[in-house]
Design a protein around this nucleic acid. Structure first.
Length: 873
RNA sequence: GGGAGCUUAGCUCAGUUGGGAGAGCAACUGCCCUACAAGCAGUGGGUCACAGGUUCGAGCCCUGUAGCUCCCACCA
């Protein structure tokens, strides 16, 4: 093995080997239980960012774990065409070349989009590989490939035929920049400082009397078709049924009574603009008001705004306010903060607008989707996210699915130009089925990107055909994603799966948080605080990045990226590397024995037992999707138990002459390292694979090896516990040296008062080496160590070290008294519990026994310390 | 208006069936000893936001309060 850990020198190579050997492939195997994860498809516009890195790390860790456990583990990757995001990008690119989208034909534009897909769609895939993602690339899907497109058609037609998709003139969110409708989920609300303009609308026939409306959007007044007051509002009752004159246009509009008008808010009088406000739209429906649209698709005013025709909506706002002021209609202007919806892709303020669009009727789909989660057919982890899901599902409005874009799945609707028939078909029709005319044309719009991603768990497995893959891999096991796309994606997959597959798409939804910067801010382009995972991988390796993203995470919580975390992760991996070098260099030229063939000493049994609990705990945590806890357990075992203790413990044997002892130590080192590497593999796949390839025990690839299983026969409870007493002695001597200022390298003679002489003798070499001692002398009382001895009391012994001048009797007494205090506190605690009748009556027996044992131990230690103190005089 | 999360060592965070407060980083002391100075050994450091309650026992469960963050709805 190379002397230093250098991830760059092997990560790419190992990935290529895995790939060429087909390690990632998952084919139906009826002798195995399937375990399936569908990768949330990254956008083809995307570049790998920390959010992906976290998401992929979670998934890869889980899928590797399950694969090693013997499941038929399928992790299916893919990319999303990202209709609106991609179109925005391409339009931007065109603009740079001075080309307007409108100057291109649809076909020309789509050609550019496909070119984009070819050019950049694969970029993210290459980047995912750098992380070590073990997905089945042979199944790489794309939301607009043939498979997925067929599924989209099928689903659209089914929903249409069931009456769950309809075409309607309703108020939608319009993005004047992208010039398309958006769903409610695609609108982000931001608080903005604006004004509340109080405008006086005169009563018809009066020059003085009028109603004062309060509005934040004076430019929409051209579309006002009424003013509303609350029916219970005494101030305005007398005006109900009368007309007011709409300023500037001088048109009479009625005063209507409607609950929508809040007596407490504003002036209590609301101008009603049905075409440009969702609430007003509803009022309009109740009162049969005309719907007057006064804006164009690009956010400019139309001809109904008279002289303001063609003016931008915000320019118009200013101009209208000026004119109203001049006309004497502006009564008051007050500052006002309100939230304004923005397009989630281009961040332009959206315009609520009446428009004819395609909608999915949500109520019938939402109910079963709610029940599925209530019935735990799908469970959210952590559970609290189910509440967010329920809240959204219970209040969901119909889903606007048509987009006035070109890049996406075209809506499978045709219109007959001759008879007006509307045709919804899975296959492109050539003639009208009703009148036979060939003059038909397809709906111009495309579908919301999320319409196709909603089908992802089954469209990628061959739906609508009854494929063997669908039967075997569906429903999938766990969906791993961030809590920020519950509405966009998770919820829609759930109702789609239930509706079209009759089964929920996944059993668990594992939610993780978002990766923030070192100051806790969201990483974003505009802040420029994003960290490029590829740069980090280049610097520290993919394993270190993966490790750092999982270390210390609690499921569902946000995490903060920091370079220091990656550095400490790299330090750990370096530790693994070097420990492996130690083991492997000692293996050279030797026949490696099995641990069953060698005589195991206390230390061997201790580390083997420790390994068993680590295996048990890591597996338990991973099964509960607690990746942070699993990683911590594996990390602590590797570093604290194996490296810091066991490896050091083997040195006397390995550097000695007894070949049997060497064989024993090496057998255990190899066995434990082999297991530990496997335990760690799902988290840090590259380095474990690299080291494994050098192991004398290696059989094929570690990624395909069996995950270690807890073996109770390898748990030597008694010997392991006894050995911890030996470790206590070693720790005591080390501490004594530091506390008395004795150089650690100085070899000292240990005087030990103990009842466990046999145990200590058997481990004498370990104690001498690790404690830095030259000899052990068993004595019957502390005085035998002489006057200048410093002492420590541990559970199985009193350890004394003669320190000559280094020991100051007063200091030594103070130190011992300090230790006595600690022991006394423990005695009080345990004794208190044991004298608490409630505790004795109600606590489990096991706990009571443990407390009793502790009390005995501490009482004994107390005695020893007191003896030592009295020896000091 | 509704809901969620967070508040634990100087910093970043774990602590998932209630049973002796933990890690990493930082700090301090001492060590280049043939796996590793990306290291080793040791030390110090906490009223677990606050106030109540349940319990033999609460960082953990319940109620309330405060601060911070987020989501949803409303916003004429």
């Amino acid at each position: 093995m190379e002397k230093s850990y250098d991830p760059k020198s092997f990560e790419d190579e190992i990935y290529k080997q895995w790939e060429s050997e087909g390690c990632f492939r998952a084919e139906r195997d009826d002798n195995k239980v399937p375990f399936t994860i569908m990768m949330p498809p990254p956008n083809i516009t995307g570049q790998l960012h920390m959010g992906h890195a976290l998401d992929e790390t979670y998934q890869d860790t889980l899928i590797r774990f399950k694969r090693m456990q013997g499941y038929c583990a399928l992790w299916l990757p893919g990319t999303d065409h990202a209709s609106i995001a991609t179109e925005v990008k391409i339009v931007e690119q065109l603009k740079k070349q001075g080309i307007e989208k409108e100057s291109l034909t649809r076909e020309q534009f789509l050609k550019l989009a496909w070119d984009w897909k070819e050019k950049y769609g694969g970029r993210i895939v290459t980047q995912l590989k750098k992380l070590g993602s073990s997905c089945d690339w042979s199944r790489l899907a794309f939301t607009m490939d043939e498979k997925c497109s067929r599924a989209v058609r099928e689903v659209f037609v089914n929903l249409y035929n069931k009456g769950l998709i309809y075409h309607g003139n309703r108020i939608i969110n319009w993005c004047p920049q992208c010039r398309t409708a958006l769903s409610d989920a695609e609108v982000e609300y931001v608080d903005e400082n604006s004004h509340f303009w109080h405008l006086k609308y005169f009563i018809e026939g009066s020059d003085t009397e009028g109603l004062i409306v309060a509005t934040t959007r004076p430019e929409t007044m051209f579309g006002d078709t009424a003013v509303a007051v609350n029916p219970a509002d005494e101030r305005y009752k007398k005006y109900i049924g009368k007309n007011v004159i709409l300023p500037i246009v001088n048109k009479p509009i009625p005063v209507v009574a409607d609950e929508h008008a809040d007596m407490e808010y504003g002036t209590g009088v609301v101008k009603i603009t049905p075409a440009h406000d969702p609430n007003d739209f509803e009022v309009g429906l109740r009162h049969n008001l005309p719907v007057v649209k006064v804006m164009n698709e690009d956010g400019t005013m139309n001809e109904l705004a008279g002289k303001y025709c063609g003016m931008d909506r915000y320019e118009c706002r200013k101009a209208v306010v000026e004119e109203l002021k001049a006309l004497g209609n502006l009564v008051k202007t007050e500052p006002h903060t309100h939230s304004v919806g923005h397009c989630y892709r281009c961040h332009t303020a959206i315009e609520p607008m009446v428009s004819k669009q395609w909608f999915v009727k949500m109520k019938p789909l939402a109910r079963p989707a709610i029940n599925a989660v209530l019935d735990k057919k799908t469970s959210f982890i952590p559970e609290r996210f189910a509440k967010i899901y329920f809240n959204w599902m219970e209040n969901v409005k119909d889903w606007c699915i048509s987009r006035q874009l070109w890049w996406g799945h075209r809506i499978p609707i045709w219109y007959c130009d001759d008879c007006g028939e509307v045709i919804c078909a899975k296959e492109d029709p050539t003639v009208c089925p009703k009148c036979g005319s060939s003059h038909i044309h397809q709906d111009e719009d495309v579908l919301d990107t999320w319409f196709s991603s909603a089908l992802w768990p089954f469209s990628t497995l061959g739906f609508p055909d009854d494929t063997s893959d669908l039967e075997y891999f569906y429903p999938t096991d766990v969906l791993v994603t961030g809590y920020d796309i519950i509405f966009f994606w998770v919820a829609r997959m759930i109702f789609s799966g239930i509706e079209h597959m009759r089964k929920v798409p996944f059993r668990y939804v594992l939610m993780h948080g978002i990766v923030r910067d070192e100051q806790g801010r969201k990483m974003s382009k505009s802040l420029g605080n994003g960290i490029d995972p590829l740069v980090i991988i280049d610097k520290y390796g993919a394993d270190a990045l993966r490790f750092s993203l999982l270390q210390g995470v609690a499921t569902g919580n946000d995490i903060r990226y920091s370079d220091a975390k990656v550095q400490s992760a790299a330090a750990f991996i370096n530790k693994v590397w070097n420990a492996s070098r130690y083991v492997l260099s000692n293996c050279e030229g030797r026949q490696i024995k099995d641990i069953k063939e060698v005589k195991l000493n206390h230390a061997d049994k201790w580390i083997i037992s420790k390994l068993q609990s680590a295996i048990r705990d890591v597996t338990l945590a991973l099964n509960k999707f607690e990746l942070g806890i699993a990683l911590e357990t594996a990390h602590d075992f590797m570093w604290d138990d194996f490296c810091d203790w066991y490896i050091e413990l083997t040195k006397s044997a390995l550097w000695g002459d007894d070949e049997n002892k060497k064989d024993g130590a090496i057998a255990v080192l190899v066995y434990v390292l082999d297991s530990a590497l496997k335990l760690l593999h799902p988290f840090i796949p590259f380095v474990t694979e690299k080291i494994y390839s050098e192991m004398p025990t290696a059989k094929g690839r570690i990624m395909l090896a069996a995950y270690p299983r807890y073996n109770s026969r390898l748990t030597y409870r008694k010997e392991a516990a006894a050995f911890e007493g030996v470790m206590d002695i070693i720790k005591a001597v080390r501490a004594l040296k530091t506390e008395t200022g004795c150089a650690p390298s100085k070899k000292v003679t240990l005087y030990i008062v103990t009842e466990s002489k046999r145990l200590i003798s058997a481990n004498e070499n370990c104690i001498l080496r690790l404690a830095g001692a030259s000899a052990i002398k068993f004595v019957s009382s502390p005085e035998a160590a002489g006057e200048n001895a410093a002492a420590k009391v541990v559970s199985c012994a009193t350890v004394l070290v003669p320190m000559g001048d280094l020991v100051d009797a007063d200091k030594e007494r103070a130190r011992l008294e300090g230790e006595l205090d600690k022991v006394l506190a423990e005695i009080r605690r345990a004794d208190g519990k044991l004298h608490n009748s409630g505790f004795m009556a109600k606590a489990p027996k096991k706990l009571v026994d443990e407390e009793r044992a502790k009390l005995d131990k501490y009482l004994e230690m107390k005695e020893r310390i007191e003896k030592q103190l009295s020896a000091l005089g």
